[in-house]
Design a protein around this nucleic acid. Sequence first.
DNA 1: CGCGTATCTTGACGAGTGTCAAGATTTCTC
DNA 2: GAGAAATCTTGACACTCGTCAAGATACGCG
Lengths: 239, 239
Amino acid sequence: MVRMASTGAREGVSFPPMTQVAAPKSPRRTPADKHDERRKALAESALRTLGELGYARASLREIANNSEFSHGVVHYYFNDKLELIVFCVRYYKETCVHRYDGVVAEATSPDDLVARFGDKLVETIVEEAPMHRLWYDLRSQSMFEESLREAVTQIDQSLEDMIARVVNRYAALAGTEPAIAAPVVYGMFDGVFQQALLGYLNGRDGALEDLRNQVAGLMPMLLAQPAETTISHEQGELA
Amino acid sequence: MVRMASTGAREGVSFPPMTQVAAPKSPRRTPADKHDERRKALAESALRTLGELGYARASLREIANNSEFSHGVVHYYFNDKLELIVFCVRYYKETCVHRYDGVVAEATSPDDLVARFGDKLVETIVEEAPMHRLWYDLRSQSMFEESLREAVTQIDQSLEDMIARVVNRYAALAGTEPAIAAPVVYGMFDGVFQQALLGYLNGRDGALEDLRNQVAGLMPMLLAQPAETTISHEQGELA
DNA sequence: CGCGTATCTTGACGAGTGTCAAGATTTCTC
DNA sequence: GAGAAATCTTGACACTCGTCAAGATACGCG
């Protein structure tokens, strides 16, 4: 009956007498945040359905059907459908905002970074198209639904930072600095990425190859000092 | 009862014996395409509601309530809710795809074109934000709903062409040619425009000014021959 | 074991949806 | 002006939705 419904305010009852809380023996078992594990499991399940049907058509019953739970359990872990959705997309963002960290860390030259970046962009469209279209769906919905805007704004900022890290590293490798502000760069890439996603979902041949080439053509323009940026570099090394 | 429901196949009964069809006397009254006028009036009404609520939340009853018709009349002019929506957005596109024709026609110099273009972009966000968010909503929905894709693809192409006309004129005024392919340019501008729209709807101060500046900064990069593109030009003449 | 709590299932309620058919109303034609 | 066709209104249908409450089940601690 209690209906706590997990409003952030962690009720202090859940913990043992506050001793052993960071104890050495069992770092895995936490009695109270099993809640959080369940929430995440439910979110993971919900994300599949959301990516398949979109925000509007994905009912709580359908979400529950594609999971191991029944449709009523949602209201045990979330107050609201909207709270579930926001939790889902926040959860997804956490895992994906570092997608290009490897690119940044491992790139050895400007051209190498461009190649790795393009590959990763194409890869994420192929492997996670449903998640990306869900994100665009939610961002569009936030233009109508006030209560989505805070989460969407935060995620957009995270993505902008993610792109900025790539471009900054690219500029550093080229021995110069970015010539365009981060918000603009993010907007540009987001736009061409969205077009590529649309083309891919439409089954347009070459949509992915186009994206790779477009990014490769765009990156050099983002740098200050158009000093013949490493043309005639050995640009193989990555298929 | 007949339930024609306006599937393009214009049933030949509606016309008089095919005489006088292009008659001189009454060029205004066309007996059969009053249908089309009604459809357009209904669409115009529906667009208001759709821009306010979005695709998913705008019910046919709500659409009809905000119009002079009753909710049943929709099925007299359209087979389907989806057919209405597609008709609406196609109708809207027709009127808006030439928004920048004036800019193209009247610009007297590269910088003048950039200024006019930026002003027009800002203006359309202020005056037609609901229509733009509706468009982004529909494009996102098309990633889930197969039956929307054809219309969305066509409209996207029209918008790409529209942007291409602006950039081509800009390059011509600068005495050079575009250095970036039209799809990429469209993707870029669409991305930064979408970000500006989001910022504007979020009430972020400076979102519109940022857009103007971003576009002004981006345009010169689209040209081949970075030959100091008309710097120190008299760039007044437009506030 | 047995009780109390946490977790989950089931079934229902009311509101809202797209769709459609039957009838009222307007409009046009002879 | 009468009759027919086009146009519009009304009311209902089958269905889905989010929400919630009451009861079933699992679990942990004494």
